[in-house]
Design a protein around this nucleic acid. Structure first.
Lengths: 344, 344
DNA sequence: CTGTTAGCGCCTTCAG
DNA sequence: CTGAAGGCGCTAACAG
């Protein structure tokens, strides 16, 4: 703080205070290198003394290089990822304003090799990448290679845990699974029952963790509930429908927890069977909205596609420019939606 | 779009295209008045032709006048409002960067006259005000007077419906009440039971609407549930405790829905009585966190104080500067929290 | 009513 | 290694 009451210290003030030029002050503040130890020390002292915080707006404005960001989402019928892609496109417009170019790339996420190749290729022309991950050594290796050559990588929705990604943006999937467990447990009531669980693939970190959380809660708090089976539906409607139908045919099922995306497939199977089964799933999309409203789905555990897309871009940009991050704003929340609190 | 591939049109381009000066282009774009019909038309045509969008960063940077914003929250023991105040203070730092001064004012919200006077007084030295409302003609009148003299007013958390406020920032309280009704109904199970409801005051729009939503759902979907009584606790721990204790003493109560804030008071009363009562309330605060974790509260319906504070400031600023608004980002969500998805 | 002229705070060549 | 100078896109005096 200084003279002008409501004014902050500017880089110019820092430079003056340190007895160096604007350019030198900039060099040390932004760690561009090429400043003597003496200058560095003096500038750092000035920064501390004046409590200097760079103004991100001015920085943006004057930066001439444009930043290319990529968003890699799975190809397929999953409507949640269409939402993410759409939101990312419109977020791109005002987050970085101009000088930021966002490209959304769809790829076959279930093939680790294809995903890894795509990532490396994208790294050639992007400075930052947000990736819906798949937990596989090839993918982790690609991420590490990108980071090694200076491309900022964040994972979105599904993490690649053993990799050098800067950060994971998405919900705590284990907690989401626990919530699902609680809901199913409480909805079933004292009597308990048999529940079927669905995932897309056991290679997806997010689905696996949901499953683990679900198991924890059921085992720990609802002894009368039994997990009948865990099915892999690849997030495809047809596959899912067939597997759920088979499960229902095989014996009384009182609840379904779909940790994956193919809710329409579950609804198909439940509709055919005509049973009054509790059904808890994930995400609010064109597909699930009517299911929740009509009561076919009793509850949905939801993450906001818009929030995630904006967070991903904001955080990539922050990584690249050193801008400040408001952690509270970036925490992706787990929302529980029922017919009563469906937005819009 | 024009020549330079990834460049947007600037005001300078617009001016050139319209054959006027920068200043004139600025005048019509920002409706500052004092431009001939001819110039206005030409500039507007240019804006459309070039798809010009002003760069908010540049605008901020060059704006010299600093904006004073006020946030009016109720004085009292309500920890949620302390959170809002805290979040507002730190949001102020980076949202407007410098050139924005945010002042948080605590006032006695239960006295419409005092609140109205305070508002009018604040209007003398602020250009924008975010107010936790109280639905009373005096308050509405004060808001109208402020708007009439050009002060932008938004309501936060609790609306002042029949007033000229620009907008209400907060959850859909009717929906929140319905959610509470569903949770209580489902947690009670088939057998149903008797439930006591609490509000701070029937003059608070938000509490009233929660009550209405709660009633809707109980009446419509849970015929076995009976609302035993509606208590006014002024959001004070002692008052609430006493009233709940009296209610519990008066006959079997299977659930409490606290639409207000004094959850500690409810917990006190439940603790004394030692009954296994379902308890659903609102907000995640220092006070409710342990109650949720320990299972005293079965669920909390939550709104994010940080999100609301940031939204309020962002929207006031947008009103004042004409900046664009991302509606999806400003929608305040209703979160359902249970022990399993408590963040942090 | 209109245009010219300085900046806002920072980044970025380009000479020293 | 260092500094001077010229923008980025917009706002706001100030002259016409």
């Amino acid at each position: 703080m200084r003279d002008g009451v409501p004014g902050f210290a500017t880089l110019r003030d820092v430079a003056r205070h340190a007895g160096v030029s604007l350019a030198t002050a900039d060099r040390v503040v932004n760690r561009r290198g090429g400043a003597s130890a003496r200058s560095t020390a003096r500038v750092e002292a000035a920064v501390a003394a004046l409590d200097f915080r760079p103004d991100p707006r001015a920085a943006d404005l004057s930066r001439k290089r444009l930043t290319r960001l990529g968003l890699v989402v799975p190809r397929g019928e999953n409507p949640f990822f269409s939402d993410i892609a759409r939101e990312a496109r419109c977020a791109a417009a005002d987050l970085g304003g101009r000088r930021v170019l966002v490209e959304v790339v769809e790829t076959d996420i279930f093939s680790p090799r294809a995903l890894a190749l795509e990532l490396v290729a994208l790294g050639e022309r992007m400075e930052g990448l947000a990736v819906v991950g798949f937990d596989h050594p090839l993918v982790a290796e690609a991420v590490d290679a990108l980071e090694a050559k200076g491309v900022a990588v964040v994972t979105l929705v599904s993490d690649v845990p053993r990799s050098a990604r800067r950060r994971y943006i998405g919900i705590d999937n284990r907690a989401a699974g626990r919530v699902a467990g609680s809901l199913v447990g409480r909805f079933l009531g004292r009597g308990g029952g048999r529940v079927g669980v669905l995932v897309a693939s056991l290679g997806l970190t997010d689905h696996l963790e949901r499953l683990a959380g679900f198991r924890d809660t059921i085992a720990g708090r609802f002894p009368a509930v039994e997990i009948a089976d865990v099915l892999e539906g690849r997030d495809e409607r047809g596959v899912t429908r067939a597997k759920v139908s088979a499960l229902l045919a095989g014996g009384a099922i009182d609840a379904i927890y779909n940790a994956g995306a193919a809710n329409a497939g579950v609804a198909d199977a439940l509709g055919e069977a005509g049973a009054a089964t509790i059904f808890v799933g994930h995400e609010l999309t064109q597909e699930t909205r009517p299911l929740i409203l009509s009561g076919v789905m009793d509850a949905a555990i939801v993450q906001s596609a818009g929030h995630e897309a904006r967070s991903a871009l904001r955080l990539l940009l922050a990584e690249l420019t050193g801008a400040a991050v408001v952690e509270d704003q970036e925490r992706i929340r787990i929302e529980i939606l029922m017919a009563d609190n469906l937005p819009g």
